[in-house]
Design a protein around this nucleic acid. Structure first.
Lengths: 231, 231
DNA sequence: TAAACCGTGATTTTCGAAAATCTGATTGCG
DNA sequence: CGCAATCAGATTTTCGAAAATCACGGTTTA
């Protein structure tokens, strides 16, 4: 693995996790020290991330982390729904026994790790990171049999974009208020295994929209959503 | 505009037009002479193109133009249909008078340039390039009011990917055999203006699938689609 | 006073050399 | 004779310096 690729992975993780918050300028000298790489691999990684909408570049004024906003969050979520619903429909139409088995397996692993999470586990901790990995693996397993490398690619990118809004919020406490996420996952799995395309699609869309609604709180204060009146 | 960005635009054009054919290794020293740039801007451009699926990188073995194949072509086309149909539905739901006006205008400009094309115009010539630009502008105008920067982004990328299969074929003669492309465009425009979402979606999908079918001929010989039998 | 002009320092961008790695052919050995 | 090890040339990747550009504060001028 080349150094440029390592830096790409690290930078991506730091942006998605929120360690590098939206809008933050990415000056090259500090990045050089942080990631122990020269200008070339750094700039290569930044250019790749720019193509993924995680970084923006202002010519001759450098890079910065792509800003976040309510509108951007919803666009990422709704686009993700468009992509993943289509992929899910195709997977339901094409998936074989192996596809079903991997869904069941991924759901089981997710449930186990979910049970392992205590209320005192850090959002960045090892237990939680494993949970995130299995959550991602479950959603990926659902659409894995869709047969389209591009849909899977876009799904992966939109996953990263939406995680930028979810992961930092987990630090707060009242995140999953009155919501049965494992139940949603189970219903989704059962609809997929029963080949109920319409129902699975509706469940998947509702799942992501509910997450989005729960994440709206973080925008409650400054970047106003509605029309300005007095100020 | 930085040098890296210029190189990106040039490289992209050369790949989409087929001047750099699929699979061709992109050695850095020749690229350096061809585009008059050092390693850094070249590699930055290549990294961006890699994220757009126009270039592939083998670590420590350099870059090459993303290979083309029947399967890749259809994946690009079907993904494009998924994206643009969704964007078109949203545009039809949201578009205002300005959206309608831009569609009518783009269609008019496209028709004019289409009439201007004689049978002796080169595929790379100025007249034909203007036609391509207006064709692209028309399809873009249809979905411009969708309100989603990501859908428009993906549509743009998939447009580039599919053009890789269409542009080189235009050099041959029997391309648009027995096909009324302007008529398809007109029907599409009329369905969009009439806010017939389902019909417009069907017309758009058929439009792209028909193009794909016409482009299948180029794979007739060597990269076989079905199972190999004797050889 | 306000606006335009110009240094100065910081930052990005680009360059070409140096280091690291791969490819292919040759040699040596069992 | 076959196969592993080795070497030379080609290529990619990385580095840090040099060039280009920007931001900003001070100065001059109308």
């Amino acid at each position: 693995m080349t150094l440029a690729e390592k830096v790409y992975v690290l930078l991506r993780r730091d942006i998605v996790s929120g360690a590098l918050p939206g809008g933050q300028p990415l000056r090259l000298e500090p990045l050089r020290q942080r990631y122990g790489a020269g200008f070339s691999p750094l700039r290569e990684a930044l250019n790749r991330l720019q193509a993924e909408r995680l970084v923006v570049q202002a010519p001759l004024r450098g890079f910065s982390v792509a800003p976040i906003s309510r509108a951007e969050m919803w666009d990422a979520i709704e686009t993700r729904i468009t992509i993943e619903v289509e992929a899910l429909r195709r997977a339901i139409a094409r998936g074989d026994d192996g596809w079903e088995a991997r869904i069941v397996g991924a759901f089981h692993a997710l449930s186990r790790q979910s049970a392992r999470m205590g209320p005192r586990d850090q959002p960045g901790g090892e237990i939680h990171q494993a949970l995130e990995a299995r959550h991602r693996a479950f959603h990926r397993a659902l659409i894995d049999a869709c047969g389209s490398p591009r849909l899977l690619d876009y799904a992966e990118r939109l996953h990263a974009e939406t995680e930028r809004y979810r992961l930092p919020v987990l630090a707060g406490d009242g995140a999953g208020a009155a919501r049965d996420v494992p139940g949603e996952h189970r219903a989704l799995m059962e609809a997929a295994l029963a080949r109920g395309a319409n129902q699975a699609a509706a469940l998947l869309a509702a799942h992501y929209r509910r997450t989005g609604a729960a994440l709206e709180a973080q925008f409650a204060d400054s970047p106003a959503p509605a029309k300005p009146e007095t100020a």
